[in-house]
Design a protein around this nucleic acid. Structure first.
Lengths: 201, 201
DNA sequence: ATGCCATGGGACGACGGTCGACGCACACAC
DNA sequence: GTGTGTGCGTCGACCGTCGTCCCATGGCAT
């Protein structure tokens, strides 16, 4: 089997990631297989292992795309007007909207674990910190200079809180939580938490 | 292959669940297979399908055990003394402690999805509501009679918030969150949220 | 024309789930 | 107590699928 050269390696990598992302978006991580990717792009399973270490590696790169999409989504919401609190609420709702539009892709970020012994790559952690940065910037007006530690903590608490609500909601494990009320729970969380923050003066 | 009669069907079911729980506790859901269970209990894979519909069914029953263990854990923490707020904090920390002691079993509750088309059984939802009930009872002093809807919402928000913190923390996806600081984030969440609640008068 | 090496077809072991055949343990007759 | 029949719990071979890896192949640079 000689070189085909109908696609450059770079094109091939993107073909594989496109196919993998589409499969996960429709059928979830469980529906992903090297063979299904190969079928869709008209190559054999072996080719995938030429371009990636293994399926986990493919999944990790799909996760990178999802993180980028989520980052773009949050960035876009920050363009609008409104006070500091309104921006926090907007970010939270943008996160919720993303999880509802692409539930399987978003779920991927949490249902996929690294094989034992290997940590998340550094670039992955950096993307996470970039996302957190949006929250920190929106929350900054609540904290005077010199309280960066408090700002960081509050950002993580709100981020994790919103994540918890959407997570349990999409898994249908909050009992009685419908799509509509997930938004209200987020409003409650953000509103009450911000109200409980020590005054910024 | 005749009847062995060394175990009653009930014993056999528990043998299977014991083995499955142990495998998941050590190797995670991905390490679970019908054959591995069979190897451990000295039966053939076919026997497992005699006692359970399929592997998902086995997993669901392991989840039931985990939910029961979590419920017992939370119940125990409510025996102690302390004001209303202290009890809320204690529940939250009990939840965190459980997730840290049995991270894979706890993760099981969220990484295992029902096969498409089938919902969670009613008894599962009831166990979830039982857990939520602990939070509601601890939070009740903050809400006057007649505000049950607000109480329910606040309970779900706090529950989901704590869940989000532990979830991102054990997945190592909060960046910079160590075991120690997960507890502090929970303290911050509960403290600030309770402070932001309208006064109960 | 030559030879290098990227390539992908196919082999391998293990998986979930099914099912027919087997043979033990018990009920019953005596 | 002994013998016998049989129901049903159990096994393990089977099917289609999986992730991964190897190496014969044959296009491309020289």
């Amino acid at each position: 089997m000689g070189r085909r050269s109908t696609h450059t390696p770079q094109q091939l990598r993107e073909l594989i990631l496109d196919a993998a992302q589409d499969i996960i978006n429709v059928h979830g991580l469980a529906g992903l297989s090297a063979r299904e990717i190969a079928r869709r792009i008209g190559y054999s399973p072996g080719t995938i292992y030429n371009m990636f270490d293994n399926l986990d590696d493919v999944v990790l790169h799909v996760e990178a795309r999802v993180l980028d999409a989520l980052d773009k989504r949050l960035s876009d919401t920050l363009q609008g007007e409104g006070g500091a609190d309104a921006r926090v609420v907007r970010i939270a709702h943008a996160y919720l909207a993303f999880t509802q539009e692409k539930p399987r892709l978003w779920n991927l970020l949490f249902e996929h674990h690294m094989p034992a012994g290997s940590d998340l790559p550094a670039w992955y952690q950096q993307k996470l910190e970039g996302l957190m940065g949006h929250v920190e910037r929106a929350l900054a007006p609540h904290f005077p200079a010199g309280r960066e530690a408090d700002l960081q903590r509050a950002s993580r608490v709100l981020w994790a809180g919103v994540h918890g609500i959407t997570s349990l909601s999409t898994a249908d494990k909050l009992s009685v939580v419908t799509t509509e009320t997930a938004g209200r729970l987020i409003d409650d969380l953000v509103g009450t938490y911000l109200a409980g923050l020590p005054s910024p003066t």
